[in-house]
């Protein structure tokens, strides 16, 4: 590859709010003057399926998607999804994952089992893994739905943007009435 671009994947389960996280990331990267591409999944996959958003930024970005071995960071909303996408991580990449577990239908029906000790297995696959319970922190901030901001807060430590810049991006992306909860969730994630 001749083009140097940073690649971030946001993965989770349809309905978890991954799109807000990528929207916010896009906003702050645009403010910083980068060329950006964000690729989303709409339609059928949103119905509780595995979802992925690709965020790429740099001086000039061509492809809107990220392939195996290309992601600098994977931000995962659910543990099984972190495991599913691990092959997309660069060999020196970082994976940040919520340890929350949501059973997929094959597990619910008994056709498959939810794998055990996934955090260890993810680390054994060679990834620098940051695993933490984002759901509890979101609840502490005031809403289980704020998981996305908790995870984004954790992700923010991988960037050299100021807290003020992040807060500004949150303010323009989140409705006024949820602003306090979201800001609190972001800071709880950042300091977790």
């Amino acid at each position: 590859m001749t083009v140097k671009t940073k690649n971030i994947m946001i993965v989770g389960v349809g309905g978890q709010g991954t799109l807000l996280a990528s929207k916010l990331l896009g906003k702050i990267l645009l403010m910083k003057g980068y060329d950006i591409k964000v690729s989303e999944v709409h339609g059928m996959s949103q119905r509780g399926g595995s979802v992925v958003t690709y965020v790429r930024y740099g001086e000039k970005v061509y492809s809107p998607i990220i392939d195996k071995g290309e992601a600098d960071i994977i931000l995962s909303f659910e543990l099984l999804e972190a495991a599913r996408w691990i092959e997309y991580l660069k060999t020196d990449g970082i994976i940040i994952t919520n340890t929350q577990q949501t059973n997929p239908m094959p597990v619910i029906t008994g056709a498959a089992e939810y794998p055990e000790n996934l955090t260890d297995k993810i680390a054994a696959a060679g990834a620098r893994a940051i695993c933490f319970d984002a759901l509890s922190l979101a609840e502490e901030a005031g809403s289980s739905k704020a998981v996305n901001l908790v995870l984004l807060g954790k992700l923010s430590n991988s960037f050299d943007f100021t807290e003020e810049e992040w807060m500004k991006a949150i303010e323009v992306s989140v409705p006024e009435k949820f602003l306090e909860i979201n800001k609190k969730a972001f800071l709880l994630g950042k300091n977790a």
């Binding site: 290309e70 599913r84 060999t91 794998p115």
Partner: peptide
Amino acid sequence: QSYIAEKLGVELPAYGKLGEEIPGRPP
């Protein structure tokens, strides 16, 4: 990009594997 790279004989990046089947998550 990887699909095109492979066809053009460009080396693909390495990556770590989990070594375990992951249950699907269909919609």
